[in-house]
């Protein structure tokens, strides 16, 4: 579904990505792990167009999307839930979710009824969000904001979801909850690229994984294969 080939990108003069290649097949959960500063978040940002790749290609469902504006890539069916969650603080929880579905709802009237089905699904997955639907998103706790960010991505009915560090800054109990949700998304057949610092947990929920080092993919394989790889064990799995 999503294919990245020989991707180069960076900020200013420092080239963070130096030829990243990876693939996310339809209906699979793929994990991207590695040390801080290895380029995981940059990979995601380059895929969704938040930074412009300098070289290489990104294809979504067979269509080349590299160099497109972020909003255009989003409309083509890529939902990126960014690092730090980035919910719209002053807006209500429900408005946040509705905006998640921006690409397939009418602009002016009747968007609420059109979104009812999706909204129902998300509220079913996250009952807490339903309780807080009228509250402004900025007042939610970190864990609730993360649920909202995932819910917002689901609202888009996307072809692929990029999920960047969903566990960041959360208490261990909430992290557990987040991984349970990822498992449920996997069962629902959602295509997912997951960046995670908790390598072990990420491997448990994924079908395939890539390990990044210094802007390149260093190791790739199924979780079972990676568990046997001594380099991975030493560096990330303790």
């Amino acid at each position: 579904m999503l294919k990245v080939e020989n991707l180069h990108a960076g900020y200013g003069l420092s080239e963070v990505l130096q030829g990243t290649t990876l693939e996310v097949p339809e209906g699979k959960v793929v994990a991207l792990i590695g040390a801080n500063g290895a380029g995981k978040t940059t990979t995601m940002r380059a895929i969704s167009g938040m930074i412009k790749p300098t070289k290489g290609s990104v294809t979504l469902g067979g269509k080349a999307i590299e160099g497109y504006a972020t909003s255009r890539i989003a409309r083509l069916g890529l939902a990126h839930s960014p690092e730090g969650r980035k919910v719209f603080g002053p807006l209500s929880v429900e408005d946040n979710l509705l905006l998640g579905a921006y690409n397939h709802l009418p602009m002016f009237f009747g968007f609420r009824s059109k979104a009812a089905v999706e909204l129902g699904k998300v509220y079913e997955l996250f009952p807490r969000l339903k309780e807080r639907r009228t509250q402004s998103a900025g007042t939610l706790s970190g864990g609730e904001q993360q649920m909202l960010a995932i819910g917002r991505a689901l609202m888009a009915k996307p072809k692929v979801i990029l999920l960047d560090e969903p566990s960041m800054g959360l208490a261990p109990v909430i992290v557990l909850e987040v991984f349970n949700i990822i498992r449920r998304l996997k069962e629902a057949g959602i295509t997912l690229l997951l960046v995670e610092q908790f390598a072990k947990s990420a491997l448990e929920v994924s079908d395939y994984a890539y390990v990044m080092e210094h802007g390149r993919i260093a190791i790739a394989g199924t979780p079972a294969e990676l568990h046997k790889d001594e380099r991975v064990l030493a560096a990330y799995l303790g």
Binding site: S167, P172, L176, V178, Q197, F198, K200, S201, E204
Partner: peptide
Amino acid sequence: KAYLGAAEV
């Protein structure tokens, strides 16, 4: 636990 995350929890 904190470093290895949910799996251990």
